[in-house]
Structure formats: C-alpha cells, structure tokens
Design a protein around this nucleic acid. Structure first.
Lengths: 347, 347
DNA sequence: GTGAAAGCGCTAACAG
DNA sequence: CTGTTAGCGCTTTCAC
C-alpha cells in the first residue's frame, strides 16, 4: 500500500537481471572457475570448452561485473585522470582537451576505464585519499600549474604519470611525458631568422611553469645562435586580450620589429589585431609564428605558421605508460614527444 | 646496490596495506555493521559511538573500498559520460568542453565517480553492453550529431540524460537538457531589429541537427514579428572559412543588408573579414550578432555581440538530473537552459 | 585441464 | 541502537 513505486526505477530490471558467471557456467555445463578462465583468456582451457563457454556467454549476453571482479582480483581496472581545479580552465585549452581525448581514445582499446577527476584544491585531501584508497590502479595528472605537482608524492605508492615536466624533476617522483618545448620554440624562431628577420620579439608565457620557461628559452637559443638581440620580450597569459596588450607594449618600445614568436596561438591572435591596427602587415612588416596549432591557426588571416605538438599523441602516450607501469614494466622516467613546425602564411 | 629501485613503484605498498572496515571495527571496539552505519551516515547510531568510530577511521586513515561497497549494495556510484567518437571533435569544441567540465565539477561534490567513455561507432555494442552490464548507475550522452541518439534506447533501462534535444523527442526515450536555441536566436535578432536594422540576413548552421534548425527558426520569428523580410539566409558549417563564403554569397545578392545574425561566433568571424574586405563597417553598415560567446568573441574587432549559453551550467544540470533519476525522483523529460544576450560593440 | 572451496571488503536484513 | 549472519559475483589456490 505504501508508495514504493519510485523504487521501480531500480527494480525495473526485474525483466532481465544481468546474467552472472554462474548462470553461464550452468548453461555451458562447466564450473564457474572454467568460465572465469575463459573470460580471462587463460591459456589452459580446452579449445572445445572455450567454444562452449563463449557461445553460452553470447547467448546470455553476459557481461562480467566489474565490482566483483575488482574485489576478487584486487585490481580496479580504473585509471584516474586528475585535473586540478585551478587548471579546470584546462577544458578551455584545446591542447589539454586534446590530451584528454588522446587518453580516452587509447584507454578505450584496453580493459581500463577512465575516471575523470577534477580535484579542487580545497579537497585535495579527498582526492589524495581516493587515489590511495585502492580505488584506482594508476593515475594521470594533467595540469597547467607546476605547483599542482603536489600529487608528485603519490608516485611512489601508485603508478602515476604527469603530463608535462614537473617543476623540479630531480625532486619529483613519478613519470612524466613532456613535449620538447625548447626545441619547438627554437625551430619556430629559426624559421623567423631564416626568413630574414633581424629584430625578433616574443610574447612569452607564464614563467612559473615549464612550458612558459622552455619556450622562452628556445626563442633565446635561436636568437643567440644567430647573434641577434634577445631583449624584445613581453609576457602574456592565455587570452587573445593578453596577447593584444603585450603586442601594444612591444610596439610602444619604438624599436623596429620584423618578427614575432608567441607562446601560444591565442596570444598570436591578439597580437594580430594590434599589428593590423598599427597599420602593419603580416608577414610583410612583421612575420609571426605561434605555438599550439590550435583550431583557429589555419583560419585566421593570414593563416598562422605555428608549432604542432600532437597533444592527442601525448595523451595516448601517457595512458600507455601508466598501463605499462601497472603491468610492472620498467619505463624511463621521462618521455619527450616531438614537435612539428607547421608552415602557413604568417611566416 | 642493484637498480631495482624502479620496482619499488609497485612493491612500496608493503608498508601500509589499505585498512579494512573490519580493522576499524576492531580498533573502535564495535561490530563491522556499526562501522558501516557510521560510514554511511545512518541516523541511528549513538553519537558517542559515532565519535569513537570516526576517530578510529581517522587514525587508520581508512577509505572504504568502492568495489566491495558496490558489490554488496548493488550500486556502482559511477556515472558514465559517453562521447560518441564521431563527436570526439567535441573536445575541439569549447562548448562541449565546458559541458564536460560542468559535469565533472558537479559530480565532484557528490559521491559519484565520472567515467569518461568515448564510444567508437564500430564498437557501439561494446559500449552498450558496458552500460547495461551493471557497471554504471546512470549515463550522460553528449553529441553533436543527433543521429548518435542511437543510445536513446537505453533510456528505459538505465537512467540516462542527453545533452541537446534529440532529433525526434516524441520517439526518443530518456531525458535531455537543451539550451533554448530558438529563444536565443530570437533575442539576438530582436537586438538587430531594435537597433533599427531593416534588412537582416543570417548565416545559418547545419539543418540536420536541432541547434541549426532552432536558431534559424528564432531568427525567422523575430523577423516575422517585426514584419521584415526573412529571405536573406545562407548556410555555413563550423569554420570561419564557411562564414566567409556565406557572407560573400549574401553580398553577391546585391540586396542591401544592414544586419546579420550568425549561427556561431566562428561563422561571424569569417563574415567579419568579408564585410571588411567589402569596405563596409561594423556595426555602422552592418551590425552583427553571433552565437556561443566563445573565448574569441570579446577580442575580435569590434567585440562581438553574441549569445551566451552557459555550457558549464548545462553540464551541471545534466549531472544533477541523472543523479535525481538514479535516486528515483521523477524529473520532467525536457529541461531547457536559458540563454543570455551579451552586448558588446558589433550590434 | 577442470572443479571445489574459500574468500575479496562491504552492506543488509534480522534478531536482540 | 548494535551485533550476527549471509551473501553480492568473481578469482584463485589446491586437489583431482
């Protein structure tokens, strides 16, 4: 008589309750152990029996229960992808979005499940405990701010790989895969040099994290190697607006500039508008090279020459590495992904 | 002496094996059932005992084992976020990225875990079975292509909510949250009308999916209400290049145009360049309103007046709804998120 | 090669 | 309000 109807939502399954391993065993006329072996592709099971079990599985449309399997095997088959909240802007960044995509795509072909976890700083404890509480087999951490390598400590307890080099590799534990930012920036800048630019400026990125530091370093290397002045640097953060502001500052120096390398395509977009406002042409007056090869790079006017980092590949690599780590393989601590200069029309 | 150090990665756990509920019980001098009650915040436990148990939990740094809990309670506490692979471009789209972020953020405050699942069309079966195999308590589906509502069928078996209205709401099962695209487009167009524009064109989006259809309809509604001509429509897809091409076609009609509404900010960006090429000014000659309020909207020149959809809020709403559905609550099938006109300088 | 038995860590009636 | 008793569905020695 009670209003238990709302329960139906859960109870509704009455029709086809998920078949259990036991039901498969009964149907195939073998023991549960055997079914388990077949499911786990154990080598020592008679081919005929395998056949038998498999068809039973198919007929019943059996799907192993993850929780049970996990409980019994003491493996979760779950890999956490941790995104520090301060870096939640990560989702705003095509680069990270692609990394995440790469991770998900790679894992889709394995038996691992991806646990997307955004970790708010206020409850970093909760996250930490979740990770160490035996709820995941391994973790991936992507973050903008190196400071977030607070998770670095987990490295000794749980297989973990970071996206991007930690601030202090010597100190940090855990593996990481990074893109070769200095080489990328160097090659980008060299493009400008070869083009004949003699006064090359840069709108650098945040210097509190590796990419910002490395790209600036790469720019310097190229300039120094060419014997050019390396004092034309202004800093920007992420948005086109930052790029515009930085470009204004650069122009305000009243020093002729014929080449520009920016920390990101977004920054370049901002610089574009200011350059144009100033009545200058691209690449005629100022040739510009960006970084990221984001989706807008090819459609801005003129199409932007930039550095492609294959972020999806990086994500896949990270995933591949945790999996290997979980399997107990030895993996070198650092993995560096190559970068590629994409030449379009801005330089 | 040996270089076995790297192995410590896995072996390190030897020190502190995760404490079990039983250990907590022993330490607190109560039964496991009581500890379980405390952990699950059961109302009927003496405050003193709660105290006792909680300190034992704290001391032991106990974290409940999800698999065991799930197995015993027959709930997984997992919500899947399904992203059809063809829509993997979703990660390229700031809108969807924000939706995902909204989902993750919302779930972070609940006891649910987010399972990011990219579903390749080739193995949609695998995905389907995974979802129905009792591995998740509910699912969220975000996709560009309405066709992907193939997952629509799961609605009757598993709590599921879609992002965006299905092609055919009457036929589809499951709940969905959508943004009010027609209202958004109408308001955007009305802005143009109020501004005094009498010849308002539109660069519409793909007509094979709801947003494209709805935004075009909203534009028409505003025009019809004002008694203006609604024949100035050209179609574009996603890129600025499409927008440029469509604008060219519009201009080629040789009909005076003083207002333009575009399906997206990207399309507007393309239109911008063509309008300028034609020697026309914005908003002087042609006022333009975009849609999406993407991160570039505020930095283009002139800053674009556009429609903001609060994608993160939509994601949070989707998450909130599945959770309610899982709890057995009744929730209206359709939820519509409001839209907001962001007035800048282009109109 | 296959089966039997014993749990994995936790929740859920059911007593008391 | 708290303890007892059974499992949840699967893996895993250990015999046969």
């Amino acid at each position: 008589m009670t209003t238990q109807d709302s329960l139906s939502t859960r109870a509704g399954a009455s029709a086809g309750q998920s078949p259990t391993l036991e039901m498969v065993a009964a149907r195939a006329g073998v023991s549960r152990a055997t079914v388990s072996r077949v499911v786990n592709a154990s080598p020592k099971v008679t081919p005929e029996v395998v056949e038998l079990v498999q068809s039973a599985i198919a007929e019943l449309n059996y799907v192993p229960n993850r929780a049970a399997r996990s409980l019994a095997s003491r493996k979760t088959q779950v890999i956490a992808l941790v995104v520090p909240e301060s870096t939640a802007k990560v989702f705003d960044d095509p680069f990270f979005a692609a990394v995440i995509q790469g991770v998900a795509l790679y894992l889709a072909d394995t038996d691992y499940t991806l646990n997307l976890l955004i970790a708010s700083e206020t409850k970093s404890d909760k996250t930490r405990r979740y990770l160490l509480g035996g709820n995941v087999d391994g973790a991936l951490v992507v973050s903008h701010h190196s400071g977030d390598h607070s998770y670095t400590r987990l490295g000794s307890t749980l297989p973990i790989v970071f996206g991007g080099r930690p601030i202090n590799p010597e100190t940090a534990e855990g593996h990481y895969v990074d893109v070769d930012n200095v080489a990328g920036a160097r090659v980008a800048t060299e493009r400008l040099v070869k083009r004949g630019c003699r006064s090359i400026a840069t709108i650098a990125g945040p210097q509190d994290m590796p990419p910002g530091i490395d790209r600036l370093a790469g720019w310097k290397q190229a300039l120094d190697a060419a014997g050019l002045d390396d004092s034309l640097v202004e800093f920007g953060d992420y948005s086109p607006a930052d790029g515009a502001a930085a470009m204004r500052r650069l122009l305000a120096r009243n020093v002729p500039i014929d080449g520009l390398f920016t920390y990101s395509d977004q920054l370049a977009a901002g610089a574009y508008s200011v350059i144009r406002e100033a009545g200058l042409s691209i690449p005629g007056d100022i040739a510009v090279v960006g970084y990221d090869d984001d989706r807008h790079a090819g459609t801005v006017d003129p199409p932007l020459t930039t550095v492609n980092q294959a972020p999806a590949a990086m994500g896949a690599k990270m995933a591949e590495i945790v999996v290997r780590l979980i399997d107990g393989d030895e993996v070198e601590t650092a993995t560096t992904m190559p970068t590629r200069l994409v030449i379009r029309e801005s330089a």
